[in-house]
Design a protein around this nucleic acid. Structure first.
Lengths: 229, 229
DNA sequence: CTTTGTGAATATTTTCACAGCT
DNA sequence: AGCTGTGAAAATATTCACAAAG
């Protein structure tokens, strides 16, 4: 059970996305064919992806949407809530705080931090902004596991240091700055430009070649193509 | 030259990131070994990745950082500037408008649009916010190719429709909403939750298994691990 | 002596195709 | 009849290992 291809995990969260859309449309059962079509994945691959973790379907019927969602959430670890410390109460921080997708997957912003005295004490979406100095203490005592860095690039490393001191295991860096963290902390850079660059290649070469493997774009099929029917 | 693995393109933008960091540190030449170490990629794979597009190195020496950057930029298509229409002048839109990584890779925000009369006419970072009604006309006459959607989810499809009418070829959707576009338009969903979910899996299973292939985290090695030596 | 570029070998991932369950 | 779960085949991707170049 060690040899789960990395791609499987990536696709699992894509399936989850699609399944939630299906659920919202009132669909109760999906076949690997339908789920595959929505996710841009070959039906056989959908089935095999699940077999790494068990046998969730019914032969001749398909997969129960609700049950499958629960299985995937358990596999990914999003079946139980996770607390987030958001560092930065500027435009980006405010945008992240209002992002509804987080809540839907059990992610809670437990505390917001900033350096700016003008922002400290104010509220963002019924959450008080705390002084960044108190981050390690608050994060540790609230057992927060995830930190999101949404500060100006120049302060990114400082924010990371405080998060590490606060004991978080996952850091999402929304800054173009290169930051470093000790072993054991998972750093995840989310650079929107990287995605643009990737897309760009397929744009300029669309004319002189066939579509890439499996006829999906550079996105890699993340996100659900069609959920309703 | 059709059969370039998709992974190559993804790694190319990772290399580019690292090379820019190297350049900023004053490094002039890199070996595949060093570039590979910084990107979390096997040196042989680094070399092979380049051979899909040519022979950019000098035997016994390595790759010239500046030249290699130019080559990769040409391959990806980021050697010439690209214009972006940003839809949504709220928190998220403002954050994107101030994101310095865009400019560094030749992406220019050419126009910002919003629906809200309070925002129209105001300035965000010396760019006037235009009425979204004028989007198709402005986008078309300015030959803008890329649209970024940063509006509330409920308006996302509407924004996409206007962008399509304006003739853009690439749309980046920063909304959790599911939107659809006609063939020929590249839609790219950028869901921060997807990344969190992916990371979460590796978090919970860190204890009971060795690191995934090639000992890099769920990030997939995007971003440069170490640029300075 | 160092490091590229690459044929050949290896490893991994994806897809086919079908037995077996409902 | 319809669809899953899975061996076996095919397709891809990665790594080794070394000849050739500076």
């Amino acid at each position: 059970m060690n040899d789960v291809p990395e791609g499987v995990i990536e696709r699992l969260s894509t399936y989850l996305n699609c399944l939630i859309k299906f659920q919202q449309s009132g669909v109760e059962t999906v076949s690997s064919e339908r789920l595959g079509a929505s996710s841009g994945v070959n039906p056989a691959e959908v089935r095999r992806d699940f077999t790494y973790f068990g046998a969730f379907g019914k032969k001749g019927v398909g997969y129960n949407v609700k049950t499958l969602i629960q299985h995937i959430q358990r596999i990914l670890g999003s079946d139980e809530p996770h607390k987030i410390a958001l560092v930065g109460a500027g435009n980006l921080g405010s945008a992240i705080a209002s992002y509804e997708g987080l809540l839907r997957h059990g992610f809670h912003i437990a505390a917001i931090f900033d350096k700016d005295p003008d922002k400290i004490g104010k509220n963002i979406r019924y959450l008080e902004v705390f002084d960044i100095k108190d981050l390690p203490h608050i994060t540790r005592s609230a057992k927060i596991e995830i930190g999101i860095i949404a500060v100006p690039p120049a302060s990114a490393q400082e924010a990371a240091n405080l998060l590490v001191k606060g004991g978080v295991s996952i850091i999402l860096n929304y800054t173009p700055a290169l930051i470093s963290v000790p072993e054991g902390v998972q750093l995840h850079d989310t650079d929107p430009v990287q995605q643009l660059l990737h897309t760009l290649y397929y744009l300029s070469s669309t004319s002189d070649k066939g579509l890439p493997r499996r006829k999906r774009g550079p996105n890699g099929g993340k996100g659900c193509v069609r959920a309703t029917h």
